[in-house]
Write a protein that binds this DNA or RNA. Structure first.
Lengths: 323, 323
DNA sequence: CTACTGGACGACAACGATGTCACCCAGCTA
DNA sequence: TAGCTGGGTGACATCGTTGTCGTCCAGTAG
């Protein structure tokens, strides 16, 4: 910047003014400075700018696994909003590890990012309270923070599971099995609970649940067990899209054609055999809302923590039309 | 840091030494400093550190679209390697726009990232030469840079397409159609050229190519045309996974069961009807190799630009067994 | 006892930008 | 003409770290 200033015969402060588009620079001065910038190929050093201003124009995003479509869509949505606010996206996978999540959080905070968007792993987040109080806004996505009151964007898991159960019940299914993920994951727990209350409300069996197997073999064995009965399970609800796909493979493996409704849509759900009925979430909207919440906080909005709950949409395809 | 120094009754320089794990601090001094850091909840300001050191410990990744599985897998791989080197990942989507790509590049360079990994859009990159020469390493992925000699990680498009054509020819197909993307995209052009030479080498027709329609309707119409003939097309090669899926939908729409081989694998390719034979690339390996190349440059490795070409793998499923 | 060594530590400047405040002067009013 | 105004500009301190270099002192050799 001092080189530019010399070349344009102005002070560094004036160069700074031009670079930041501030008021109060005569057009001819600005032109001289712009020309000098062009000639020297000058690029402002944002590290210095960040240091002086005390805040970096970047937002940190922590997800479980960047390559999972659910999270990458969230990431893309966050980046789109961030870009409009002239912020960069820093992104990392916590891979379900609380330690890795803390490391990433620390790294982002050390870099003085403007804010954080986090899909939290299993753990207590009260240690983040200090940073929150210090003015770095944090928004949680998909799952709320535990031990901390902060903004969050969630899916309406309860209504979503209920719509799945009601849909199957309306088609005559009485014994519906639920395949969920480890209930230590908040969403898995929510969906399990929702399954319990939805089935109970309809007078259906609520005990056909398994939060266990994730592999084709395990699920295939489970299906065998559930269908050996004289009063067999005739339909399945799966707690996330990985389980939906795995269940589909398992059903093929054992040659049973149970009805199936999956939580969370996935690409080609309409092209597989049978096309899978799903409770669709809207990850792009989740990312977008989270980013909007964050930037509203950055714009100075106060008030208590907000929670945005997004609705689900039942997308009926073939798999729920099976006997 | 000065607060920590006061509390531990040492100089800031000593705190800096402890924070950076430098030699030459007595264990008891280090313990005092650590304790002060803990008590005050001190976190080093990386903006200041970056400024002083002249380089940020982050690497910038520019892809076409973060939410596309191909790119998000690259991103996850890059992040994994970056993490091991204690670097953060900054990521953005250029969305096929050269301008947006330049903006992102500029933003990353302003932040003085350690290096850049770029999936380039259509354009000339000689303007990057100055930065490259100035010591910021750049690695290109999926497509080489134009007008610039830089490291790159590519897929062996030629061998991949050839394996697809040979596979279909071996199953008796003589008239094979090629559905590609806009040939301004480097990969699309490569694959088209590869299709031409592979068919020519086998004495097959090389003129059944369309770099045009991307929607179900357009492709359906094209298929109708190609199969109306007395000497009809009996097999299709698609140039990327979006086209494979769209072609699959189009074939269903018009009720034709042509053989199909897609370039690039996709999730559930084995579960759709028919399961799709593909030429699989390895995006995770591409991201990993690119990151390794980058960090080798950062470690001071000199020498001319390297190009790593990764092999493809033909994954035979049902769609290529159709008549 | 003196001279020397080397390890531990601190003072200070510098990295490149920006906020504050003072300055200058053209153009105005009284 | 003297005094004011206010827009354009610059000098300087400052953000939080780290590189350089000098100081201090305990321990050792002569």
């Amino acid at each position: 910047m001092v080189d530019v200033a010399k070349r344009a015969a102005v002070s560094v402060k004036t160069v700074s003014r031009v670079v930041n588009g501030e008021e109060g620079v005569r057009p001819d001065t600005k032109a001289r400075v712009d020309e000098a910038i062009r000639q020297l190929g000058f690029r402002r050093n944002d590290s210095a700018s960040d240091l002086r201003r005390g805040r970096a124009e970047g937002i940190g995003l922590i997800v479980e696994n960047m390559s999972d479509p659910f999270y990458s869509v969230i990431g893309a949505a966050v980046e789109r909003v961030a870009r409009l606010q002239r912020h960069l996206l820093l992104m990392g996978s916590a891979e379900g590890s609380a330690e890795r999540e803390r490391d990433l959080t620390g790294a982002f905070l050390s870099r003085r990012v403007a804010g954080l968007i986090v899909v939290p792993a299993i753990e207590d987040h009260h240690w983040l309270a200090a940073e929150l109080a210090a003015g770095t806004p944090v928004v949680f996505v998909d799952r709320p923070a535990s031990g901390l009151s902060a903004d969050a964007v969630l899916t309406d898991n309860d209504a979503g599971v209920r719509s799945a159960v009601e849909h199957l019940a309306a088609r005559g299914h009485r014994n519906i099995g639920f395949l969920g993920d480890n209930p230590e994951f908040w969403t898995a727990g929510q969906r399990l609970a929702a399954f319990g209350s939805a089935t109970a409300a309809l007078g259906l069996r609520s005990d056909l649940t398994a939060m266990g197997p994730h592999e084709v073999e395990g699920i295939a064995a489970l299906v065998e067990t559930w269908t050996r009965d004289s009063d067999p399970v005739t339909a399945l609800v799966t707690g996330n899209n990985r389980l939906s796909v795995t269940a589909l493979r398992a059903l093929r493996r054992v040659g049973k054609r149970l009805a199936l409704v999956g939580f969370d849509d996935f690409e080609l759900a309409d092209m597989v055999e049978p096309a899978v009925t799903v409770v669709a979430q809207d990850p792009a909207a989740m990312g977008e809302q989270a980013a909007h919440l964050l930037f509203r906080r950055l714009a100075g909005e106060g008030g208590p923590a907000r929670t945005v709950v997004l609705p689900t949409r039942l997308v009926v395809r073939d798999s729920s039309h099976l006997v």
